[in-house]
């Protein structure tokens, strides 16, 4: 281990000459491979299924708050994602990639961004779009530029702008009195943006608010996301920089003009938690360099606040992440770490 030269141990193949003394075998032949001969136990399926497990608290809470429709929505998306994946595998003549878990994540995440009242057929369309266009057109897992679930959601937003922003209030909601027909209502962000009302932060934290499935309960997302960070399956820099930027920038804007929402409201509303912990951290579409991760998070945070305060849309999480996805290759290129010893004399 002192000098760096190793004799090539790459292309050694035993010759197939039985007379060759190499092959006086009294046992099964030994396997030749190039070092390293050890591996971590981490694997792509393990990472993906762990992400799914980390999503479970949010899944359970959304079923608790929204009831069966939430369950139908999620299972529809997951199943159609799986079927779309199989179809694409078949068309491309590759092995079935369901076991790697990535299609399930896409389906589940997409479901989490949809309101429970959304029609299932439209949800299926969105999921298929996410898998086929969002992932496989780019070349499949690892090659997509955009987070497939968010791309699917953006597509749905374009197709069904009204339906996707019609929210059911959780059945346990205490503010039903505010709502005319007691079935649909705007999200806290929508309420704020278009009616200038703020919602109760406590309820936002626990999930007792209107919104899409995974948008509502910050606590369940934090638990699952924290688990991912501890397992190191998500880069902690991204949620920290993303949420931190939103908080700081939001605070500055609030201080300039108190008519804007306060920073805590920013943090807890509009699926930011879900986006920060589960979507921005999507490995495939976020930078590989540590510095890049900071830039990614900060950039997304600034975009988010700008969209929320000055854009025409109530929601900015989706676009802020998608935009940063688009510049990720660029970020990777310009944030190459300094080589060990580079620049030292």
């Amino acid at each position: 281990m002192e000098e760096k030269v190793i004799k090539n141990d790459v292309k050694v193949k035993p010759k197939k000459n039985p007379k060759d003394k190499l092959f006086k075998l009294d046992r099964q032949p030994l396997i030749i491979s190039s070092s390293p001969h050890l591996n971590t136990t981490d694997s792509v399926p393990k990472i993906m299924w762990t992400v799914i497990i980390a999503l479970l608290p949010a899944v359970v809470l959304s079923i608790y708050y929204f009831g069966l429709p939430a369950l139908w929505m999620m299972s529809t998306c997951v199943i159609s994602a799986g079927l779309a994946e199989c179809l694409m595998n078949k068309l491309k003549g590759e092995e079935f990639t369901i076991p790697d878990g990535s299609a399930v994540i896409t389906g589940l995440l997409l479901a989490m961004t949809l309101p429970p009242s959304f029609t299932l057929t439209s949800a299926i369309i969105g999921t298929v779009f996410a898998i086929v266009i969002g992932k496989h057109i780019f070349g499949g897992l690892g090659f997509n530029i955009f987070n497939p679930a968010l791309l699917g959601r953006a597509f749905l937003q374009a197709c069904f702008p009204v339906a996707i922003t019609t929210w059911t209030f959780p059945k346990t909601d205490v503010y039903l009195s505010k709502i005319v027909d007691g079935v649909t209502a705007a999200t806290p962000l929508g309420l704020f943006k278009f009616e200038g009302e703020t919602s109760d932060l406590f309820n936002m934290f626990w999930g007792n608010i209107g919104g899409s499935l995974g948008e509502t309960s910050a606590i369940s997302i934090i638990i699952g996301g924290g688990f991912l960070l501890i397992k190191k399956y998500a880069d902690w820099r991204i949620p920290v920089s993303y949420l931190g930027t939103v908080f700081l920038f939001g605070a500055i804007m609030w201080w300039i003009n108190p008519k804007y929402p306060d920073p805590t409201f920013h943090l807890l509303s509009g699926g930011l938690m879900l986006g920060a912990f589960f979507m921005a951290t999507d490995m495939v579409t976020s930078p590989i360099t540590p510095k890049g991760a900071w830039i990614f998070g900060i950039g997304a945070g600034i975009l988010l606040v700008v969209i929320r305060l000055f854009g025409g849309l109530p929601e900015g999480v989706m676009y802020s992440i998608l935009l940063m996805n688009a510049v990720t290759p660029l970020i990777n290129r310009y944030t190459r770490p300094k080589f060990f010893g580079e620049g030292s004399k």
Binding site: S34, N39, L141, T285, S286, P287, I288
Partner: peptide
């Protein structure tokens, strides 16, 4: 060595491991 190979998922783990940066 190891089981199935997957495409690179850009997780950056190799980047965090490389002692030569």
């Amino acid at each position: 060595t190891n089981g199935t190979s997957y495409p690179c998922i850009q997780c950056g783990t190799c980047v965090s491991a490389c002692p030569m940066f």
